[in-house]
């Protein structure tokens, strides 16, 4: 942790407010578009939150606001990896906000869910939706509950559950 930057910059609302020297800077508008367009998460879900960038492309979500930039070890929760071709939500973001999604979500049965949480890849024969990062859910006490992110490519679902969160269930 100590080698990481401790500087958090609030993500600008729109392109017009972007830092002139950083044309790649991610905006709040782009983040809201991403969650709505790809996963169908309504924009008002994030009304009470601010987005922060730490290092290049790592977006954090914070309930409330703070002066920007702010020098701390953590501000809210890691949320989204940007500044790469395909943006990638974190496991934590999906567990907390993925329940609002209705697109690019794949629902697994009990055996498949255990395979996913163990961090293993698996064949997914019947998926006909988009490729790329999907929100992966399963049934827990009668309701659908998001577990994390899977990368779907060529008929296979690759678990993106971080090593430290993987479990043999």
């Amino acid at each position: 942790m100590s080698h990481e930057s401790t500087r958090f910059d609030r993500v600008p609302a729109t392109e017009a407010e972007r830092d002139d020297e950083d044309p790649e800077q991610v905006t709040r508008e782009e983040i809201l578009d991403f969650w709505e367009d790809r996963y169908g998460v309504p924009r008002p879900v994030f009304d009470d939150y601010t987005f922060w960038e730490r290092g290049a492309g790592k977006i954090w979500i914070f309930r409330g606001d703070a002066p920007s930039p702010v020098d701390v070890e953590g501000l809210g929760m890691t949320f989204l990896r940007t500044r790469q071709e395909h943006w990638k939500p974190t496991t934590e973001a999906v567990q907390r906000f993925g329940g609002h999604a209705d697109k690019c979500t794949v629902h697994l049965d009990a055996d498949q869910a255990a395979t996913f949480v163990a961090g293993e890849d698996q064949e997914l024969a019947d998926w006909e939706g988009d490729w790329g990062y999907l929100i992966v859910s399963h049934d827990l006490v009668g309701e659908s509950e998001p577990m994390g992110v899977g990368l779907y490519l060529y008929g296979e679902l690759r678990s993106q559950v971080p090593k430290g969160r993987q479990r043999a269930l």
């Binding site: 401790t6 914070f62 309930r63 701390v72 070890e73 953590g74 809210g76 929760m77 890691t78 934590e92």
Partner: peptide, 16 residues
């Protein structure tokens, strides 16, 4: 940090 993330806490600022 990892405990707070597993619990989905978003209103915590961490200082060292």
């Amino acid at each position: 940090r990892s405990n707070a993330e597993r619990l989905g806490v978003t209103n915590v600022a961490v200082t060292h």
